[in-house]
């Protein structure tokens, strides 16, 4: 288990390294020099030279690469071209908003998804099951920003029940929660259908297994059979998919934050892109990649704990 953990974490770092190389070369792939692109065509040469120096672009390439990695390792993601604030600080400022959005979305998805999945299993083959099937597929098919736009229109503009923009007042939990409902629902709903299908399928597979018949043949209650003998096995694929899901949820967050003008990594990154604020673009992408790798790796380790068979394959 330990050597597996080390291997998985090593792999995560390797991927991060490759992503960083890619990010770094992005600066050179984009036509024009970054300072010039950032400043626009009418900037004076002095200003351009100043910015070039500030961004370290006047140094030899290998020094730039080395600096980039060394700084990143120290948690220094550079400075905002305009405000000169440290990028990491800017990210950490808004990241909790995005994280909460992501987790609440995941919460919606998980609670509704597992519940609907179990309902479909209990009433399998009936009208309810088929209805849930159709519903799930439609939930998967509609992109979250479409849901975001419509829910904004209905619940904020027409009904006026929930705030349309922002993340709520600082220090006012109630308003923060109200501001979370629509965006998290818009993101989570696309995952509800997915999880419901997944839970249904893996639950049915597990319930048909011989060991479930064995457990039943000893007269265990259906509750015990489903909750201790089947659910744990059925959740293994769900955990794996959820980790992937968080990645996609964070990328939907970019759009949904834009629709709701909600401060977060998504808005930070979109603004930085439109202002050609390279350090911020690179910083946010790097941060999100690192975070995503962290989640996926953690999920793999959780799966290894849930399933003794995986644990053993890994041990050998």
């Amino acid at each position: 288990m330990l050597s597996y953990a080390i291997k998985r974490i090593g792999l995560a770092f390797l991927i991060l390294f490759v992503v960083m190389l890619g990010l770094f070369s992005m600066v050179f792939v984009v036509p024009g020099d970054p300072a010039g692109v950032a400043l626009g065509p009418r900037a004076s040469p002095e200003l351009r030279a100043q910015l070039t120096e500030r961004m370290g672009l006047d140094q030899p390439l290998h020094v730039q690469v080395a600096n980039f990695f060394a700084n990143a390792a120290r948690g220094d993601l550079g400075y905002d071209v305009w405000s000169r604030r440290p990028v990491l600080e800017m990210i950490l400022d808004v990241f909790p908003n995005t994280l909460i959005l992501g987790l609440v979305s995941l919460g919606w998805a998980l609670v509704l998804g597992v519940a609907l999945g179990c309902v479909a299993v209990v009433w399998r083959g009936t009208f309810v099951d088929r209805l849930l099937g159709v519903l799930s597929v439609s939930m998967i098919a509609v992109p979250s920003f479409v849901i975001a736009l419509y829910s904004l229109l209905i619940f904020s503009v027409w009904l006026g029940w929930l705030p349309a923009i922002g993340a709520g007042e600082k220090g006012d939990i109630g308003s923060q929660i109200r501001a979370l409902i629509l965006p998290s629902f818009a993101i989570g709903i696309t995952w509800v259908g997915y999880l419901a299908r997944l839970v249904r399928a893996s639950m049915l597979e597990v319930l048909a297994a011989e060991h479930i018949r064995m457990a039943r043949s000893f007269g265990l209650s259906e509750r015990r059979v489903v909750l201790t003998y089947a659910l744990r096995l059925a959740l293994i694929p769900t955990v794996a998919v959820l980790a992937m899901g968080l990645g996609s949820i964070l990328s939907s967050a970019v759009f949904v934050e834009a629709v709701f003008s909600r401060p977060g990594i998504g808005t930070l990154a979109t603004n930085a892109v439109s202002n050609r604020n390279y350090p911020v673009v690179m910083g946010t992408v790097l941060f999100m990649t690192a975070f995503y790798l962290f989640v996926v790796t953690a999920a793999d380790l959780v799966i290894a704990r849930l399933d003794p068979r995986v644990r053993d394959v890994l041990r050998s």
Binding site: S217, G219, P308
Partner: peptide, 22 residues
């Protein structure tokens, strides 16, 4: 269900799959 176990106990045919793997 009350009958299963002390009333009728079963040794299933496939010993490889008989126990819950987790």
């Amino acid at each position: 269900r009350r009958l299963r176990g002390p009333g009728v106990a079963m040794v299933l045919q496939d010993p490889m799959q008989a126990f819950n793997p987790v």
